[in-house]
Each structure stands twice: as C-alpha cells, then as structure tokens.
Nucleic acid binder design. Sequence first.
DNA 1: CGCCAGGTGCTGA
DNA 2: TCAGCACATGGC
Length: 321
Amino acid sequence: MPEIPAADFVLATTLRSGQVFRWQEQQGWWYGYLGDTLLKLRQHDGRLSYETSDPAFPPHRLTRFLALDCDLAAILRDIDVDPHIHRAILRHDGLRILRQEPWECLASFILSSCNNIARLTGMLNRLARRYGAPVALNGFSGWTFPAPDRLARAPERRLRALGLGFRAPYLRAAARCWCDGAVAVDRLRQGAYEQTKAALREIEGVGDKVADCVALFAFEQMEAFPLDVWMLRVLQQQYRRRRLSPRRLHAFARRHFGRYAGYAQQYLYHDARTLAARNEGGGRGSSSLPQVSLRETIPGESIHPPSFASRCEAKQNRGVH
DNA sequence: CGCCAGGTGCTGA
DNA sequence: TCAGCACATGGC
C-alpha cells in the first residue's frame, strides 16, 4: 500500500471542517473523491496510507490536494494575532486548506446557500448518482461528481426533483458559464485575489461568499475570507465588531488577519461550529454563538432580533393561503 | 413542530 | 452603499 509523509496534519479535522462534503469515514478509512478518482485514506504515525481507483494516480496529486507541501506552522504563526484565533489554532492545529477541483467546489458552495451541511451532502450525492459516473474501490462504491456539461443540459425541474430548491437555476447557470469557457480557469489561480474573486462573481448565482470560498478552497487565494452567518457571529461577538455591515466586516477581517486571512477564517469557522456542537447537549441559548442575527445585538439587551432564516420563513408564511 | 441552515439577485431609498 | 424581500426544503 502506498504512503506519503504527512507531518503537521490532521486528516479527520481537515475533512470535517466544512471544506468538502462528500468524504466519509468507514471502518477507520476515509473515502472520497478527487476529480474522477475515488480515494481511500488513513493517517497513522505522521504518514498517510492510501489507495485509489486509478492505477496511474501519482502521489504528488494527493500531496497537492491535501496541501501537505505548505508550511502550516509558518502560516499559523502569521495569523496568530489575537486570543480568539490563538485558541482556535490550539484546538484545531493540523487543519489544512485543501486544493479542491474547481468545478465541484463551485457547485458545492452554490448549493450551500441557506442550507445545512447534512442536507447539502445529500444533494451532492443525489446529483452524483443521477449525473455522475460509477466508481468503486475495494468494497466501497460511489459516483463521481457530474461534469458541468451534464448539469448544463439537465432540465431545471429535474434538478429541483433532486431537492435543490431555488438553487437549481443557479447551479445550471453556473454550469453553462463554466462550459462556455466564460471562466478562465487557468488564470484564476495565478492572478491577484481581487481579480480572481471578480471573475468568479461574474458567474450567475455566485456572490461574495461563494466567490471567496472557491477562491480559497480551489484557487489558492489565501487572503479570501468567506463571510457566512457563522463568521458574522464570530466577528460580531468575539471581535466586538457589531454595527458593521457585512462589507465592512469583511474588510476588517482581511486587514486584521492579513495575507492568510482565509486560514484564520477556516480555523475560526471550525471552532465556532464545533463549539456549538459541544454546547448542544447542555443549555439552549446559553452557548456563545447561536441566536444572533446579521445586524446587531445590543450588549445587555435581552431580546434578540429574529435570525435571517426565521425572517425568511415569516415572509413566506405570511403569503400562504 | 419550529428553528435554522457556509446566500444571491433585485429593488428602492 | 445598504436594508428588505423572495426564493424552497429538510435535518435535527
């Protein structure tokens, strides 16, 4: 069985940190995809054992995907600028930002909007089963993620039937864009962050947040700082930046953390989510992060404004019957 | 059963 | 530049 060195790295933390959604652990092995290759990984003693469905799969492709060629310690030293990020680093050291296949990354994060990871995983797997290709490795079998031209041709109602909801037309539009060659994929890795993000935002259905995710997780733009509801809460509560619009929060975070802001984001994001999970068992709203909305909670105020999602539903219900 | 989920595009001020 | 709104659905 092939192996590669994997120092300063924690596979499980990395794969569970919300960058990828179709990897799963089974009997001590992690199964997932890199492009059309099915991979099987296990970490032990600072090394990584792996098998693949592709006999010609070169080891350096795995090294690249897992970003094992990066000096993680140096990156973490660079972003370790305050007590909050320091705590997150101590808790999740070994988490690395992957280098994903751009198309699957883009599609995944388009579908992530107003969604939770469990359901997103289901949506992606249903898409793969319906439009992808079967692939197997030892006892494990699955489907590769569909190429963009397959999804560009898929009727919107078929996509909706897979449970994509209002994201279906966004995904289709992005698939068309991708096929049309409207996206200069090769350039996105090279250029400056602003250029990459602007190019991604040209795609219909891609806004600030998804563009930052794809820039960071697929195009090695380490200063990209995806600002989702979790990070909004972190910045508002831990960093006491209330009353700032999302735009200004984003600018603050990039300034505060610098050239590896994306790494800081990922550590803070993962820390907030695992903290929330830890608090599930205990009190209800007693945990530090949940319950606060986009805009503001005034210190000492007992009433929280309604969250984004509940406001969405209130609107909907009003229109019913 | 109600709350929430790694948002985006459009509109009007 | 920013707030408010519609958009659909299921996991927990």
